[in-house]
């Protein structure tokens, strides 16, 4: 950890901006009830108020405060994406490392299964499964985690195979260490750099995926505040955008607010991932 803090001082401007943005999002998500002026689905006033105090970003069709919903959205959308990515990594990395270490028919069987799952485009597969399970937060997390773990599986298997050719693995095996020890104490520490970078990329992907499904009306269900569904709910307002006066302009910009929130976070994570990738490749040679 101190290692990372040390590198932070030499981080390029883009990575610093990315990190700062991520910290802001994290604070908003963690302390949403303290920061948001109104409740998540509280009707705060009349519908479609302009951007003036006390509704700094106006109100939506039901009179809910848009700023409060954006802040709660950070908690719901980002939180869900984080849980999903962690789950995908738990499944994918565990199976990938296991497949590489054990080898033989376990490796073959798992790899063939993953090949089939990856042959179906993930959005299409997710839509198919969500038809069967119905749209709910749990279904969403499980489906996307399962689909995404296939990518993690491929990467961690490939990385582990490279590490397995090393002498220290052979030494550990000859010492009589068990499977669990070899995976946890020998492979995992050496595979952490590419896996951390992949975590960032996967998070972006999952986050966009959840937003897309919510935008299609198949993700988080109302009245939960969520950026994807907020875009969906206010989408048709954009045709009323009119930059003649300040008030009409803000009215039409409503769908762009949650969409911008999504876009900024993905850009921020990408900036940091670029830096981590650069760092881990630079440290090797």
């Amino acid at each position: 950890m101190t290692n990372w803090l040390f590198h932070l001082r030499g981080a390029p401007l883009s990575a610093r901006i990315g990190l700062a943005l991520i910290v802001i999002y994290a604070i908003l998500a963690l302390f949403a009830p303290l920061i948001a002026p109104y409740g998540e689905s509280e009707v705060a006033g009349a519908a479609y108020q302009p951007w003036i105090a006390p509704y700094y970003l106006g109100t939506d069709a039901l009179g809910r405060d848009v700023m409060s919903r954006l802040i709660y959205g950070a908690r719901n959308t980002v939180g869900l994406a984080l849980i999903t990515t962690c789950l995908a990594f738990l499944i994918g990395a565990a199976l990938g490392l296991l497949a590489a270490t054990v080898g033989g028919w376990v490796d073959t069987a798992l790899s063939r299964l993953i090949d089939v799952l990856m042959a179906i485009p993930s959005l299409i597969f997710a839509l198919l499964i969500l038809t069967i399970t119905g749209a709910s937060a749990t279904a969403l997390v499980l489906v996307i985690a399962a689909l995404d773990s296939t990518r993690v599986f491929r990467l961690s298997r490939a990385v582990a195979q490279g590490i397995l050719t090393m002498d220290y693995i052979e030494v550990a095996r000859m010492r009589g260490e068990g499977l669990g020890w070899i995976i946890r104490r020998e492979i995992l520490p050496n595979a952490s750099a590419p896996l951390i970078a992949e975590f960032g990329l996967r998070f972006c992907f999952v986050f966009l995926f959840i937003s897309a499904l919510s935008f299609l009306g198949l993700g988080l269900q109302p009245p939960t505040a969520d950026w994807g569904s907020m875009v969906r709910e206010s989408a048709r307002l954009i045709s009323f955008a009119n930059f003649a006066t300040w008030q009409t302009a803000t009215f039409g910009l409503a769908p762009l607010l949650p969409a911008t929130a999504i876009a900024i976070l993905t850009v921020a994570v990408n900036l940091v991932v670029d830096w981590v990738l650069h760092l881990s490749s630079g440290l090797k040679d």
């Binding site: 955008a241 769908p255 876009a263 850009v267």
Partner: peptide, 29 residues
């Protein structure tokens, strides 16, 4: 291009609608 990749599809779409359909009126939304 990195920026465009990071944006959700609907963000790009709505920006285009805002510029070309609503503001300029060149194409239908």
């Amino acid at each position: 291009t990195l920026a465009v990749i990071s944006f959700p599809e609907f963000f790009v779409a709505y920006i285009l609608i805002l510029i070309f359909a609503v503001q300029l009126g060149w194409f239908p939304s």
